[in-house]
Simulated scan of single mutants.
Amino acid sequence: MRARVYLLRSNGRRVRADLRKPIAGYLQLQTKVTGSVSTTALHLHERDPQGSRTDELVSPLYEPVLVALGTDALLMRGFESVNGAAFVQEWRCVFDRH
């Protein structure tokens, strides 16, 4: 699903609203199972129009939870990994109307 994502935190701390820049891409929710452990992550990808290759635009949002739902946007909260440390992260996802 195509969306513009605003990262609301940096290393767990809130980012001022005037400093948030949208990152446009495609949202994809993936669950990986390793043995008896499953991990869910929300990814923001850039699509390659020539094929199926995708590049991640930001670090995945692990164990995402829907916090708020609007008419054209939603707020997701989870964790991101930065240099081996985990921080709370929130994504405001605004959907394109195409």
Rank of each mutant, 00 (worst) to 15 (best):
T34I: 09
T34F: 14
G35N: 02
G35L: 03
G35A: 04
G35R: 00
G35W: 00
S36N: 12
S36P: 02
S36H: 07
V37Y: 12
T40F: 10
T40D: 10
T40I: 09
T40Y: 10
T40M: 12
A41V: 02
L42V: 08
L44H: 09
L44N: 07
L44G: 06
H45R: 09
H45D: 06
E46K: 06
E46I: 01
R47V: 01
R47I: 00
D48H: 06
D48W: 05
D48V: 03
D48F: 05
D48S: 07
P49Y: 01
Q50G: 09
G51Q: 09
G51E: 10
S52I: 11
S52C: 12
S52N: 15
R53E: 14
R53K: 15
T54W: 10
D55F: 14
E56D: 06
E56R: 06
E56M: 04
L57V: 08
V58S: 02
V58Y: 01
V58L: 01
S59M: 07
P60I: 00
P60A: 00
L61G: 02
L61R: 00
L61E: 03
V65Q: 13
V65I: 13
L66G: 07
V67P: 04
V67M: 04
V67H: 06
V67W: 02
V67I: 06
V67S: 03
A68R: 13
L69G: 11
L69R: 14
L69A: 12
G70E: 13
G70A: 13
G70I: 07
G70D: 13
G70T: 13
T71M: 11
T71V: 10
T71S: 14
D72I: 04
D72E: 11
A73T: 11
A73K: 12
L74D: 15
L74Q: 15
L74N: 13
L75C: 08
M76L: 14
M76H: 05
M76T: 02
R77E: 13
E80Q: 04
E80K: 03
E80T: 07
E80R: 03
S81R: 14
V82K: 15
V82W: 12
N83I: 00
N83S: 11
N83C: 05
A85C: 02
A85M: 08
